[in-house]
């Protein structure tokens, strides 16, 4: 009995350690957002934001075009997620449930595409969108994000669909469902966690992007939140309080999104991988 309790205590200690390491930078971000100028970069670390200020938040929200940036970011994220899920799902269905010529090549291609460094592609992508008249347009960055999200999405979803026993579908069909019906009633619910996992991945990638949006967008009214967050750094240095207040605001939607999908996510992330 004591031994068991000891092990339990050991696990909890380890958990606290893990929590400290993961949460400390987050705590520092949130706390700094409430600190006054002199307390931010101080020789003796200030652990608590006392006396605090809301000035940083005011300045973050008061940046010109803030609401416009929010709108753009939300639009871009939703569009990218919805389109990528739809396209990836169809492609994954093909890759998982059908045999066809070029399937192996497809799988290899999906991996190789992820190996190309983004930074090296930025100018070629710009030039191509420029030729199509799609720079400085949200549509332009949406399709660009799609290409970075799709390979991962197809890959993950394929793993998912492979993992679902065909017998389930067959059983459903024996019970009188059509293939489409089997698909909708049996396959779809089982794939849902995979869709969630993919959505989360896309969300992080798109929500956090700075470089693509920065190079492709130029009008002040078309910027995204990633650019807004970077605007605290100017040639006059970085306004740390503003960055941290902004980052806290910036992270909230991501955390909320996570919490909403978290239960599905956990089952989602793996099922996709189990059958390689």
């Amino acid at each position: 009995m004591t031994r068991k309790r000891l092990t339990r205590a050991g696990y909890n200690t380890a958990a606290v350690l893990v929590l400290l390491v993961t949460l400390f930078p987050i705590y520092w971000m949130v706390a700094t957002g409430f600190k006054r100028g002199v307390d931010i970069l101080s020789f003796e670390p200030r652990w608590l934001p006392i006396p605090g200020t809301l000035e940083n938040y005011r300045s973050a929200i008061g940046k010109p075009h803030f609401l416009q940036d929010v709108r753009n970011s939300v639009l871009v994220v939703i569009a990218t997620i919805v389109i990528s899920l739809a396209l990836a799902f169809l492609a994954a269905l093909a890759a998982a449930r059908f045999r066809f010529r070029g399937r192996a090549a497809l799988v290899v291609m999906l991996i190789v595409v992820q190996m190309v460094p983004l930074e090296a592609l930025i100018i070629p992508i710009y030039l191509m969108l420029d030729r199509a008249g799609q720079t400085d347009r949200l549509a332009g960055i949406i399709v660009t994000y799609l290409t970075f999200v799709l390979p991962f999405a197809i890959w993950t979803l394929r793993g998912f669909i492979v993992n679902i026993p065909e017998e389930l579908e067959e059983a459903a069909m024996v019970d009188g469902c059509t293939r489409a019906g089997a698909f909708r009633r049996i396959l779809f619910p089982l794939v849902a966690p995979g869709l969630v996992a993919t959505a989360v991945f896309s969300f992080i990638l798109v929500w956090n992007d700075y470089l693509i949006a920065y190079v492709l967008l130029r009008s002040p009214e078309k910027q995204t939140l990633g650019i807004w967050l970077a605007s605290f750094t100017t040639n006059h240095g970085t306004e740390w309080g503003g960055v941290m207040a902004g980052s806290t605001l910036f992270a909230i939607p991501a955390v909320v999104f996570f919490l909403l999908v978290q239960r599905r996510l956990v089952s989602g992330l793996t099922a996709g991988a189990v059958k390689g």
Binding site: Y126, D130, T135, L211, R218, S219, T233
Partner: peptide, 25 residues
């Protein structure tokens, strides 16, 4: 006339792309 304020970070990357394109500022 449309004035667009640009950020300093990575500005050369953006300038390189813009000047290479068909309609730089």
């Amino acid at each position: 006339v449309k004035v667009e304020l640009q950020q300093w970070n990575n500005i050369t990357t953006k300038l390189d792309a813009a000047f290479a394109g068909s309609s730089p500022p």
